[in-house]
């Protein structure tokens, strides 16, 4: 990987952290409503995995789908950050035209197929996206990001089984942050090593890796992505990570200790990668400062400004998008009397 790409990746992760921090501020200002689940701490997983896949190329992208902690996955796949922010603000210019909100970011133009609030629901949808890719012979794959908590849903087991028997080109990325909402994995899950839950049970290739060092993530993800694409078979990859904020805004994090948080913060993916790149002479500390300034400028003068100034959806369009708004009367009718 070139130095330019390494610098870009670090800058991307710093941008993602700042994006989430800024949504937190907007939420506290009541500019953003509903539920808000932030990705801070887990950036290396999404950034590293999707760096190894086809993203940012529009309709040629691989298909990406995830749960409700979805802002960063959407942006890394190719969604415009200002449209994601406008969505959080509920605006017509938002990526889902203000109809979805934080938990339901969609960008079909980049094959980002959505954030879903039913834990575990993206498993079968992802397998279906993969079935479509395989059926059409496009060489695209589906990539499904979900947390360890999702693996206690029936859809996990049902989908692993079908993805395996039908050889679907889907990569399941388990972001194991140790908590299912606020319950520690040791108390919710009989087998804490998630990759072990699919290998013999569903005869699927799987592996477990550190998710805080993006170099590790990329190396493991490349193997997995190539396997899925070339072998046209599923792969389950687990990354050990940690979310620095609560599950959502209402979470006081009373279920975990300060000591545990401090330990994981030492392994902050941005700190790890910054240190590596500085030590390798790829960047200087001053570069990071300069990026932070640039990012803040972009955040306020473009992204937030766009979200603030964009119009809300028109009330007269309340019932638009429920069903096909221009249906073919041959199929829909009404019945000719």
């Amino acid at each position: 990987m070139s130095d330019a790409d390494k610098k870009r990746l670090l800058r991307e992760m710093i941008f993602y952290r700042r994006f989430e921090d800024r949504t937190f501020e907007a939420y506290m200002e009541r500019k953003i409503g509903g539920f808000l689940h932030l990705y801070s701490g887990q950036e290396a997983v999404c950034t590293g995995v999707l760096e190894m896949a086809n993203v940012g190329k529009g309709k040629e992208n691989d298909y990406v789908i995830t749960g409700y902690r979805d802002h960063i996955h959407a942006i890394k796949t190719g969604a415009a950050p200002r449209e994601v922010m406008a969505e959080l603000y509920g605006k017509e210019t938002g990526s889902s035209k203000g109809r979805g909100g934080s938990m339901h970011i969609f960008d079909a133009s980049q094959n980002f197929m959505g954030g879903y609030a039913l834990v575990g629901q993206p498993f079968p949808l992802a397998a279906g996206l993969a079935m479509g890719c395989k059926h059409k012979g496009t060489n695209q794959i589906a990539i499904c990001f979900l947390g360890d908590g999702a693996n206690n849903q029936g859809t996990f087991h049902e989908t692993m089984n079908m993805a395996a028997i039908w050889n679907l080109p889907v990569l399941f990325v388990c972001e194991n942050n140790g908590y299912a909402i606020g319950t520690h994995i040791d108390r919710s899950t009989a087998q804490p090593d998630q990759y072990k839950r699919v290998d013999t049970a569903y005869n699927m290739k799987s592996s477990q890796h550190d998710g805080m060092d993006i170099d590790n993530v990329m190396e493991a993800a490349k193997t997995a992505v190539d396997y899925v694409r070339n072998e046209q078979k599923p792969y389950f990859i687990e990354f050990m990570t940690y979310r620095f904020r609560g599950h959502s805004m209402s979470d006081a994090k009373g279920y975990r200790t300060k000591e545990e948080e401090a330990e994981w913060e030492k392994r902050d993916p941005i700190k790890i990668y910054s240190k590596k790149l500085i030590e390798a002479g790829v960047i200087k500390q001053a570069d990071i400062k300069a990026w932070e300034k640039e990012i803040d400028d972009e955040m306020e003068n473009d992204i937030i400004k766009f979200a603030e100034e964009s119009p809300e959806p028109k009330l007269e369009e309340l019932t638009r998008y429920v069903l096909d708004d221009n249906p073919d009367p041959r199929w829909i009718g009404p019945l000719q009397k």
Binding site: L125, A127, G128, L129, G132, G154, T159, M162
Partner: peptide, 12 residues
Amino acid sequence: SYTGIGIGASMV
């Protein structure tokens, strides 16, 4: 899940 797989396939 097979209904969900069908839905996912319909999305593409």
